[in-house]
Design a protein around this nucleic acid. Structure first.
Lengths: 179, 179
DNA sequence: TCAATACAAAACACAGTGTTCTGTTTCTTG
DNA sequence: CAAGAAACAGAACACTGTGTTTTGTATTGA
């Protein structure tokens, strides 16, 4: 990849996340992004087809880091032991905490759908095993949605109300899991 | 109120909910609404300042019916008895079921925020008492968000996956309440 | 009946998107 | 190092949708 491309791409992401700290995704215009990144309009559109695609790329980046090592260790995990699922969740929360400053700008409107789409897909994969061990009588499709949304919405709430540590949030969440 | 006003207002709401059955709120334009309602552009804007205000008016209407009798019976309710909270939830689900055909069109993007804003406000009021009786060790602000989002997201899931009755959904939900 | 007002139709300014053009700079490869 | 390829800037453009304004008509309630 061309050095210029990488530089421009970094500049776009930097400008984008920077703007997200100040206002919500919906209010940010392409014009603002290219002004702050100090690039031309054509340049932006040669990197990303639309503003939404930029957000998609950002989300891919984020969740690649958040879920990468979790998934690679997947085989060695045994969810019947409490420690594993708890440590995974804590890890996820620590990773997300690094992006805390601009996440609120994403978590509303159309951008929330895109972000949550990625997030919930990964969570679904993670919680499916937990559900299968659950003794709750509700059907699995209900329980899976219940857990995935519970965690996703808890994270959303956490970003707007940052008064607890990842360990605390994990503890609260674990307490209400239907096991 | 003028008969013409009421007629026009009804026509706008009818066209709006009708369009919501076909596509999402974000994709619906004012032009489509006034075409289907067979009214002029100026007429629409004399009734509602923006498209968002129309959605707000619709939400107000919906939740007025969904939560009206529940709130009026508030004083006679005793949440320490299982029956009351369960019957309330079932009632809410039955009312929402009447709008099932166009709710999916609202439950995404910016419109979801508006709808959920009303919904969660009412739910917060409803669940605060339940939380105070909970024996869970997590803090109340966490638990309240947990329950409110759980129910709201369950309803959202229900509208997209309509294979259970209000009673069944209520049963599933009640099973995972932290009491 | 008559004044008020709800309405229709069309034109308008505005903002934001995504495209297209013409050059210029920078990289890479032979 | 030279030459072609690719990334870039800048400006203009068409397009869509919003919300406003203007002018004139039809309906209502007093």
């Amino acid at each position: 990849m061309d050095r210029r491309q990488k530089k421009t791409r970094r500049a776009i992401f930097a400008a984008f996340t920077d703007l997200l700290k100040e206002e919500s995704y919906a209010k940010i215009t392409v014009q603002q992004i290219i002004d702050r990144a100090d690039i031309g309009r054509t340049t932006f559109y040669s990197h990303f087809e639309t503003k939404d695609e930029l957000l998609n790329a950002l989300c891919t980046d984020i969740f690649e880091h958040v879920f990468s090592e979790e998934l690679s260790k997947e085989k060695t995990h045994d969810f019947s032991r409490v420690h594993d699922i708890k440590s995974q969740i804590t890890h996820i929360l620590y990773h997300l905490q690094e992006h805390m400053d601009y996440l609120p700008g994403i978590l509303s409107g159309e951008s929330e759908d895109i972000f949550m789409g990625y997030f919930k897909n990964h969570l679904q994969q993670l919680f499916t095993k937990v559900i299968s061990l659950s003794s709750a009588s509700a059907p699995e499709d209900y329980l899976l949605n219940h857990m995935v949304c519970d965690f996703a919405e808890t994270v959303k709430w956490w970003t707007k109300n940052q008064s607890y540590s990842p360990e605390e949030i994990c503890g609260f969440f674990y307490e209400t899991i239907p096991v």
